[in-house]
Design a protein around this nucleic acid. Structure first.
Lengths: 202, 202
DNA sequence: CGCGACGTTGATTTGCCTCAACGATTGTGG
DNA sequence: CCACAATCGTTGAGGCAAATCAACGTCGCG
């Protein structure tokens, strides 16, 4: 039974890798062995501020967020990760230092996680993964840069519209509060924006 | 003579790579062959909006900026690259689509550039570079994320102070206008900030 | 020398925040 | 399964950080 669920949940990841580059049997077994399925309940922490981030997470289903809480207690969402997305505090993960970020589940979420040590094993046993992860992180870099550009050059209204376009699958799964925190505005102001936009449309 | 200057300028890059991972003679020759030295005069474009970004640049000396000009004509600096930094519009570089960004020189700048096609050659001939560039981009990703966090969670004053800390070598090389554009504020407001900070110190 | 970019300062405006109040929804323990 | 608490989304009034527009002196460069 346990074997089964494990077998079942590794599939999306193998499929994900194979869309980038073919894997041989040995590499598939390595992935199956090194990535562990794990369920996080809604609100459960994957990483808590003050700890070292030792895992890299691949979301199979559900949704995680990574955020910082500033001195005034405000939450700033740095990243959302839903199906087929990766998430981790890479700064802490690679330096093995304490993180100032939190990762938690916005829904019950199934992940495949790999420990830092096991990622090194993966790289050693199957050097092909240097290439795979190079490509993955390049893509993440590109979208992060897009977000930075948007943040420094657009109004909250434009950012919200862009969010609607680029995260259509999340729009109805997240609360306004979470969306506001991702956009870097207050829930009150998001409410006013929505009001304004819906009036403009009619 | 030309040979000499070429030989001279590849050194910093080889040294840079070898701080990450040792290279054998063949790999060094490959790097020397595939990266071309090039001088950009102050204000000269390395990449102009509307063109595809085909090169990856490593700055040997000088300083480049990558920026977007929005509809209102305002310049937003996404990245500064001085000595030993990399710069390129990766989105355009990998997709081979037109870029909406510009890269130009803030000082006379010596770079080592590699064409997209030659980077593929490098990867094929020396797969070790998948690993090297994976590490490089991971580090870029981490600092980009730090900047995003700062941008969404801090005031302009805090961002300016952070800039002073993290780019001490650039503070006296850039105009206030460039710094303001990098911080995402107007030159006028930066002027007021500096005034306020210097008053607070005395 | 003269012109255009730069840095500064003042007056005014604006995008977004803060605080507070309210009903609606969710969730949770008894 | 209900009652009560907590969180959520909305709206209003007022405030603040940063932008805008304008004016002016300085400097570097052609």
């Amino acid at each position: 039974m346990k074997e089964n669920s494990s077998q079942a949940s590794i599939e999306p990841l193998l499929h994900y890798f194979e869309r980038l580059i073919a894997l041989d049997q040995e590499e598939k077994e390595l992935v199956t062995e090194l990535f562990k399925p794990r369920l996080f309940r809604k609100r459960q922490y994957c990483l808590q501020e003050g700890n070292t981030c030792t895992q890299l997470f691949f979301v199979v289903r559900g949704c995680l967020r990574m955020y910082k809480i500033d001195e005034q207690g405000t939450t700033h969402i740095l990243q959302l990760a839903a199906e087929k997305n990766w998430i981790s505090d890479l700064g802490s993960f690679y330096s093995e230092k304490k993180s100032e970020l939190n990762i938690d589940a916005l829904e019950d979420t199934m992940v495949l996680e790999i420990h830092h040590d096991n990622l090194l094993v993966l790289y050693t046993q199957a050097p092909k993964f240097h290439r795979i992860f190079r490509v993955l992180i390049e893509n993440s870099y590109i979208s992060l840069q897009k977000r930075l550009l948007l943040t420094i050059s657009s109004t909250a209204e434009d950012r919200y519209k862009y969010f609607l376009d680029s995260y259509p699958h999340l729009v109805n799964r997240l609360s306004q509060t979470q969306i506001a925190s991702f956009l870097g505005i207050t829930p009150e102001f998001l409410s006013r924006l929505r009001n304004k936009i819906s009036k403009a449309k009619s």
